[in-house]
Computed example of a mutant assay.
Amino acid sequence: MKYLKLVNFLGLLVRFFRYNIKVIFANKFIYFLIAAFLFFAFIITISLLEDPNLDESVIYGFLVFPGVLLIFYPVVYGLQNDDDSKMLEVIFGIPNYRYKVWLVRFIIIVIVAAVNLTILAFLANFALYHIEIPVMVAQVLFPITFLAALSFMMSTLIKSGNGTAIAMVMLGVIFLIFYEVLEYNAWNIFLNPYIEPREMSETIWLNVIFKNRLYLAIGTGLALLYGLFNLQFRERFMK
């Protein structure tokens, strides 16, 4: 009896994830998945042909972009897709909708990204360089999840998918412009924890990494909470 209940629960959970993934990615999930894998395959091919000195820091950089690609569309265009499909009115009719719907969606987006990053990390481990896959994926998820939360917050302020996309691209360009200046700084969103600065002691560098991950975790929480807070103002979103 307990076994049947467990099977039924797992079946419901699988259907729940399938349905939400279809909604989140607007039935375009396969395209983003293919794009992420093709991009990663292209990078691996180029790396093998050029035979560079690969290490964990290079693999980390390879994984960040596919991760951003996987979370960008569902977070940036999520509210607009709900509005276009007239689902926004239904969502606003659910008590505590901002927690029951969008928080669950956000978690699913991160889980989907983590699963696919794990697969990509396994391929990199097999084809390029030996890495600790769980640790690598966890490290990549820090900036990815922060950018997802920031994109979600911006979408609740701008209330337009295209507008949010433009804003996030501009922010991304700004982050990249200041990357070299902040390369070894705790405030660098794209800080690569696998780089070993020669002019910095290991203890100081580990402290920088810890602060960076702490800042990203706090920033993720604050951006997500502020985005959920914005969703309680129904009149801002209903036309």
Rank of each mutant, 00 (worst) to 15 (best):
Y3R: 11
L4S: 09
L4W: 14
K5F: 04
L13W: 14
K22C: 07
N27G: 11
Y31R: 07
F32I: 03
I46E: 05
S47A: 06
L48G: 05
D51Y: 00
N53D: 07
L54A: 01
E56G: 06
S57V: 08
V58I: 11
I59P: 00
Y60W: 15
Y60E: 05
F62Y: 15
V64A: 08
F65D: 01
P74R: 03
V75C: 10
G78H: 04
D84K: 15
E89L: 13
Y99D: 04
K100I: 02
K100M: 05
W102A: 02
V104G: 02
I111H: 01
V112C: 13
A113K: 02
F122G: 08
F122S: 09
A124P: 00
N125V: 04
I131T: 06
V135L: 14
V135C: 07
M136C: 09
V137N: 01
L141V: 01
F142L: 11
P143D: 00
F146Q: 02
A148C: 07
A148M: 03
S160Y: 13
S160A: 11
S160R: 07
G161D: 03
A165G: 11
I166W: 09
F175D: 08
L176H: 07
L176C: 06
E180M: 09
L182W: 11
F190Y: 15
I195W: 05
P197L: 09
T203W: 14
W205T: 12
L206D: 11
L206T: 15
N207C: 09
R213E: 15
R213P: 00
I218N: 07
L222P: 00
L222I: 12
L225W: 08
Y226P: 02
L231G: 03
F233H: 12
F237V: 15
F237P: 05
M238L: 15
M238K: 12
K239L: 10
